[in-house]
Amino acid sequence: MKLPKWQTYIPLLFIIFMFVLPLFMNSPRYLNLLNQLLLNIILAMGVYSVWSVGFINAAQPIFYGLGSYTVALLMMRAHFPFWLAFPMAGVIPAVVALLFGLIGLKMKGAYFLFLTIALDGLISWLFISWKGLFGGQLGIFPVPQPRIQAFGLDINFATSRTPYYYLALVTAVITCLVYFKMFNSRLGRVWESIGKTEDLLANTGISVFTQKQIALAVSCFFAGLAGAIWAPYITIITPSQFGLWQGITIVLGVLVGGIYSPLGAIIGTIFMAALNLVFTYLPSQTVQYQPMALGFILVLVLLFMPTGILGLSGRVQNRIKELTGRKTAPPSINKDDVKAV
C-alpha cells in the first residue's frame, strides 16, 4: 500500500497532536478515557497482527492482565523497581503465549478462537482461586507508583495522571511503529499470505508455524506492557478487569475499523471508545442493552460492511473517482506484454 506524499504526514501530525493534547485538556475524566484508549490501541494492534496470520485472540485482555499482575507482584513481593518490572511484564505473557501457541496455533482459526476463550476461563480462574499469589476476587492493591529521578527530572507518577498518559502514549507509538514497519516489509507480505496459501509458503522454505508463534508472542508482549502501565495507574487490579467481554470489544474494534490494514485497528478502537463515551451519557437503565447493541454492531458489520470503516472510505474514494472521471482501470493484460524467451 503506497500512500501519496501528503498522507504520510498525517500519522506524524496525529502523534504530535496527541503529545500536546494534555496541555489543553487536563480534566482527569478525559485523560482517563484517552489513557484507556491508548492501552486499547496497543491491544488492538496485537489482535490485528494475529488476525493477519489467520487467528482471532479473544483472550488478549488476559495477557494484558498477566502483565498487570506481573508488574504488581514483582514490585510488591520482589521489590523490583518499576523500570525493571516493566519489560518483565511483557516477557511473561509472551512466554505464556508461546506455550499456548504450541497447541493452539496448530488448530484451525475458529478452534483457536474457542481455545482462547477456554484459556481466558482458565487464567481468570487461576487469578480468582490462587488467593495466595493473585489475591482472589479482591485482587491486589495498592500497586506502587513509579517515579523517575534522572537527569535532574523528578517525575512522580503518584501525584499526577499526566505521566501515565505519556508513558502509555510512548508505548502505543512504539507498538504502532513496530507493526507498521513490520507490515510494510517483505515479512509483512509473508504474514498476510499466511492463512491463505500455507502449503505454498511452506514450499518456499518458510516455517509458517514459527511465524504464527512470533506473531502471537509479540502481540502478547505488547499487551503485557500495556498491562504494566494499567496496574500502577489503576492501583488496584482485580480479575474482573480482564474479562472475555473486554477481549470481544477489542476484536470488535479491529473488525469495525477494517481488518485489511493495521490502520483499521486504530480507527476501530477509537470508534469503540467513542461509542463507550456515548453509552455513558445514556440513562443508566440502558446499561443492560449495551451488550445487545455491540452484538448487533458485530453482526451487521460482518454482514454488510466486511471491510470496515477503512473499506468504506475506500469505497467513498472510488465513488468520488467515478464521479470525477478519474477512475483507475484495473491493469489489463496484453498478449504483447509477454515476450517469448
Binding site: 516489509s185 515479512l187 507480505r189 509473508v190 499470505s193 502449503d199 505454498l200
Partner: peptide
Amino acid sequence: ATVFQELSVLDNIQVALHYKSRVGF
C-alpha cells in the same frame, strides 16, 4: 496453479525469496 493471489507478481517472487534472504522479525 497456486500463487499468492492478493500480491503483485513481483511480490510473489519476493515472498518466495524470503527464506533465502533470511529476514527475521
